[in-house]
Amino acid sequence: MAINGRGATGNRTSRRFGLPEREADGDWLDDREAVDGPPPGLKTTVTALTPRTIITYNKSPDIGFDRSINAFGGCEHGCIYCFARPTHAYHDLSPGLDFESRLFAKPDAPALLRRELMKPGYRVGPIAMGTNTDPYQPIEGEWRITRGILEVLAETGHPLTITTKTDRVMRDIDLLAPMAEKGLAAVALSVTSLTPEIARTIEPRAPRPERRLAAVRALRAAGVPTFVSIAPVIPAITDHEMEHLVEAAADAGAIGCFFIPVRLPHEVAPLFRAWLDAHFPDRAAKVMGIIRDIRGGRDNDPGFHSRMKGEGAWAELMRTRFHIACRRHGLVNRHVPLRTDLFRPPEGDQLRLF
Results as ranks from 00 to 15, higher is better:
154 A>E: 14
219 L>F: 02
106 K>Q: 06
255 I>G: 02
330 G>N: 12
327 R>M: 06
76 E>D: 11
192 T>H: 09
346 P>C: 04
91 H>V: 03
229 S>H: 15
301 D>C: 05
342 L>G: 05
227 F>L: 05
80 I>T: 09
39 P>R: 15
162 I>N: 10
247 E>G: 02
23 E>S: 13
102 R>E: 00
291 I>E: 01
58 N>P: 00
267 E>R: 02
3 I>M: 11
72 F>Q: 00
153 L>T: 02
294 I>V: 13
14 S>K: 06
158 H>A: 08
220 R>A: 01
299 D>A: 04
346 P>F: 01
31 D>V: 01
193 S>K: 13
215 A>N: 05
84 A>N: 10
149 I>T: 07
34 A>G: 10
86 P>W: 05
257 C>N: 02
219 L>W: 02
196 P>G: 04
273 R>M: 06
297 G>K: 03
148 G>P: 00
65 F>T: 01
296 G>R: 08
97 L>Y: 04
121 G>P: 09
66 D>A: 11
7 G>N: 08
262 V>T: 12
228 V>A: 04
184 L>N: 08
46 V>T: 05
309 K>C: 10
340 T>A: 11
68 S>I: 09
185 A>Q: 08
236 A>C: 09
343 F>A: 06
84 A>W: 07
293 D>M: 14
254 A>G: 00
308 M>D: 01
309 K>A: 12
144 R>E: 14
263 R>S: 06
24 A>G: 14
126 P>H: 10
133 T>H: 06
111 A>F: 07
326 C>P: 00
48 A>N: 12
108 D>S: 11
280 F>Q: 07
197 E>V: 06
113 L>A: 08
59 K>Y: 14
352 R>T: 07
196 P>W: 15
224 V>D: 03
157 G>Y: 02
240 H>G: 14
220 R>M: 07
336 V>K: 13
222 A>P: 00
353 L>F: 15
96 G>W: 03
294 I>H: 11
259 F>C: 10
23 E>W: 15
258 F>Q: 06
153 L>R: 01
144 R>A: 14
151 E>I: 00
5 G>F: 14
332 V>Y: 13
3 I>W: 06
41 G>T: 07
140 E>A: 13
204 P>Y: 12
187 V>I: 11
269 A>K: 09
229 S>N: 15
124 V>I: 09
307 R>D: 08
28 W>G: 05
103 L>Y: 12
30 D>Y: 03
137 Q>N: 07
172 D>K: 01
20 P>A: 04
57 Y>C: 02
12 R>Q: 02
346 P>H: 02
105 A>D: 04
90 Y>L: 06
19 L>T: 05
79 C>M: 11
198 I>L: 13
55 I>W: 09
310 G>K: 07
341 D>V: 08
72 F>R: 00
171 R>D: 04
132 N>A: 11
80 I>G: 00
332 V>R: 14
223 G>Q: 05
322 F>G: 02
212 R>H: 13
248 A>F: 03
267 E>D: 02
303 G>V: 00
65 F>Q: 07
219 L>A: 00
17 F>T: 01
38 P>M: 14
243 E>S: 08
35 V>M: 12
17 F>M: 01
137 Q>A: 08
72 F>Y: 08
315 A>P: 14
51 P>R: 09
153 L>I: 07
155 E>Q: 05
195 T>P: 01
213 L>T: 03
109 A>E: 06
225 P>Y: 15
116 E>Y: 06
24 A>D: 15
